[in-house]
């Protein structure tokens, strides 16, 4: 492992190195190049796979790729139909994109922690953090987009008047309690994107950190710990992608419901 390479910096240096993104720019205009590259690359993988399946889509006996794509489509469609009762062109494709994209992000966590960063170092990259879900920018990008959609659909379905009325008189329908209602609704709406982003980030960041900590142990012990953790992680990465998708559907269907 790369422990020797960073021996001078010690264990803390090794951990920090693994969790530091490859950056460009200063201040707010700093760009996490690794996050941008890997998420775009994985998005490309997702789009390429589904597009090739869609191009060859036939209602006869499906091929292997089409079968897999249809399995995912049907799975997402079931989730959408379970909680969303309106008609929307956007929600199901959105849910599919979220699930697949986040799953692919999380899947990067299954690569050995030192593999890609070592390859990156060979290519002259000082830092390389390959799991986009361990970057708050990536998780917040999705959750804020979802939040914008929540606001958009609230305004579109309920109208500005109804929406503001709901914000002012819900849950307590009394003029005196308007300030309290506003505070409550503000927290409720804000909690949605923050919880979405932090849940995914926290799970994957912690998972990655544990992989890094295991990599610091003597090599004889590593497999004993990293194998069970990796197996457990298969569950976590799928579950986190699933939770993000389901909550997005639920939030958007709540935005569609007129009280």
């Amino acid at each position: 492992m790369a422990t020797e390479t960073h021996a001078a910096e010690g264990a803390t240096g090794y951990i920090i190195h693994h969790l530091t993104p490859l950056t460009a720019g200063e201040g707010f205009w700093t760009l996490h190049l690794d996050t941008l590259f890997f998420s775009a690359f994985l998005g490309g993988v997702f789009v390429w796979f589904f597009k090739s399946a869609a191009d060859k889509a036939t209602s006869d006996v499906p091929g292997l790729a089409q079968n897999f794509a249809e399995m995912l489509i049907e799975f997402v469609d079931t989730q959408v139909k379970d909680s969303f009762h309106g008609k929307s062109e956007l929600i199901a494709p959105l849910a599919l994109t979220i699930f697949c994209w986040i799953f692919l992000w999380n899947l990067m966590d299954m690569f050995p922690v030192d593999l890609l960063s070592t390859v990156g170092a060979m290519m002259g990259l000082e830092y390389l953090r390959v799991v986009p879900s361990t970057d708050l920018n990536a998780t917040f990008a999705i959750s804020i987009s979802v939040f914008c959609l929540i606001i958009f659909y609230n305004l579109k379905i309920k109208g500005l008047w109804h929406f503001s009325k709901e914000l002012l008189f819900h849950p307590f329908d009394h003029p005196l309690l308007i300030p309290f209602n506003i505070l409550l609704n503000f927290v409720e709406y804000l909690a949605k994107p923050i919880s979405l982003a932090l849940r995914l980030f926290g799970n994957l960041y912690a998972g990655e950190l544990i992989f890094i900590l295991i990599a610091l142990l003597p090599w004889g012990i590593q497999p004993l710990l990293s194998f069970p953790w990796a197996v457990f992680h298969i569950l976590i990465i799928t579950l986190q992608a699933f939770i993000f998708m389901v909550l997005t559907i639920v939030y958007l269907s709540m935005a569609h419901e007129d009280h």
Binding site: G25, G27, F28, W29, T30, L31, H32, T35, L36, S39, A40, G43, F46, V47, F50, K51, A53, A54, D55, A57, Q66, A69, E70, I73, E89, L90, A92, P93, L94, L96, T97, W101, P132, D135, N137, A138, F140, A141, I142, I144, S145
Partner: peptide, 26 residues
Amino acid sequence: NATLIGQMITFTLLVWFTMKYIWPPL
């Protein structure tokens, strides 16, 4: 930081593409 904006653009593009070219035919 600005990565957030980049990620949002990528996400929007992915959702748009999925909505337009992937979901309907499948």
